[in-house]
C-alpha cells in the first residue's frame, strides 16, 4: 500500500485519525498512575474519546480505500514514516503538568479544527466532527481548568506548569503550518486553512493563561514536519509497543 499517493481525502483522514490515535495512546499510558483517582478516570475518558475518534476517521478512510482495508491495518501496519500526526501529540507524557500543557495546546487547536470541520464539504467528515466537538469542548474545559488550577495553586505547581507550557510551546507552530495535504483539503473545502486558526487559537490560549496569571511563553518555532511523516524519535518507540502483537503474529486475528 502506497499511503502517500492514495486519494487526498484518505490522506487527510489519516492525518486527522493519527493525531487522535497517538494522543489517545499517550493518555492511555496514564491509566492506573494518575495523581488522584478522579483524574485517572478523567484521563482515561480523554483517551477513550480520542481512540474512538481515530477509529471513526480510519473506518471512513478504510471504506474509501476499499479492497478489504481495515482500521486495524491502518493503525498497526504503517511505519512511523507513514504516520501523519503533529509532533506535539507524540511527545512523552512527562509529569502531570507536561501532560496538561500538551493537552491544553492541542485541545484549543482541536476545538477550532472541529468547529471548521463541522462545515466540511465532505459530509461524512462533517458528521464525525459534529459528534466529536461535544467531547472536545469538554476536553478543552478540563485542560484549561487544570492550567488555571496549577498556575494559581502553589508556588511549586506554578513553576512546574510554567516550565511545561514553555517546553511544548515550540511544538505548537506546526499546528498552523499547512502541509500539502492540509492545502489540498482546504482547496477542496474539506477542512480549514490551518494558518487562519492561529489567531483564534492564541486568543483561547491567552484567555486561560490570563486567568492563571501566567505569561504566554516565548521561544522559537521548532522545525517540525510530522504531518509529512518526519517525526521525533519517540514515535518509533510508541509504535513499536503499540504494534507489537499484530506484527509478531501476522496470521492471527484478535
Amino acid at each position: 500500500m502506497k499511503w502517500d499517493t492514495c486519494d487526498a481525502s484518505v490522506q487527510y483522514l489519516l492525518h486527522l485519525g493519527d493525531d487522535a490515535l497517538i494522543l489517545g495512546h499517550r493518555l492511555s499510558e496514564w491509566c492506573g498512575h494518575g495523581p488522584i483517582l478522579e483524574e485517572d478516570i478523567a484521563l482515561s475518558n480523554l483517551a477513550l474519546d480520542l481512540v474512538g475518534l481515530a477509529r471513526q476517521y480510519y473506518q471512513l478512510a478504510a471504506q474509501r480505500i476499499g479492497n478489504g482495508m481495515t482500521e486495524d491495518r491502518i493503525a498497526y501496519w504503517r511505519s512511523d514514516r507513514e504516520f501523519r500526526n503533529h509532533v506535539l501529540v507524540e511527545q512523552p507524557n512527562g509529569d502531570f503538568g507536561d501532560t496538561m500543557a500538551r493537552q491544553f495546546y492541542f485541545d484549543a487547536f482541536h476545538f477550532l479544527q472541529l468547529e471548521a470541520l463541522q462545515h466540511s464539504s465532505d459530509i461524512e467528515l462533517a458528521a464525525i466532527a459534529r459528534k466529536a466537538i461535544k467531547e472536545t469542548t469538554y476536553h478543552a474545559q478540563h485542560s484549561s481548568e487544570w492550567v488555571v488550577r496549577l498556575g494559581d495553586g502553589t508556588d511549586e505547581s506554578r513553576a512546574r506548569i510554567t516550565a511545561s507550557l514553555a517546553k511544548f510551546w515550540p511544538f505548537t507552530s506546526e499546528l498552523f503550518e499547512p502541509s500539502s495535504v492540509d492545502r489540498a483539503a482546504h482547496a477542496a473545502g474539506w477542512g480549514p486553512d490551518v494558518a487562519s486558526l492561529r489567531g483564534p487559537w492564541l486568543d483561547l490560549v491567552q484567555e486561560v493563561l490570563e486567568q492563571a496569571e501566567l505569561q504566554l511563553p516565548e521561544g522559537h518555532a521548532k522545525l517540525l514536519r510530522g504531518k509529512s511523516g518526519i517525526h521525533s524519535e519517540s514515535l518509533g518507540f510508541l509504535l513499536a509497543e503499540m504494534q507489537s502483537l499484530p506484527r509478531a503474529y501476522p496470521d492471527a486475528t484478535w
Partner: peptide, 13 residues
C-alpha cells in the same frame, strides 16, 4: 508521591 504537588495545587486553588 508524584501526584502530591498536583493534589496540593488543587487544594490551594
Amino acid at each position: 508521591a508524584e501526584g502530591t504537588w498536583v493534589r496540593e495545587a488543587a487544594t490551594a486553588y
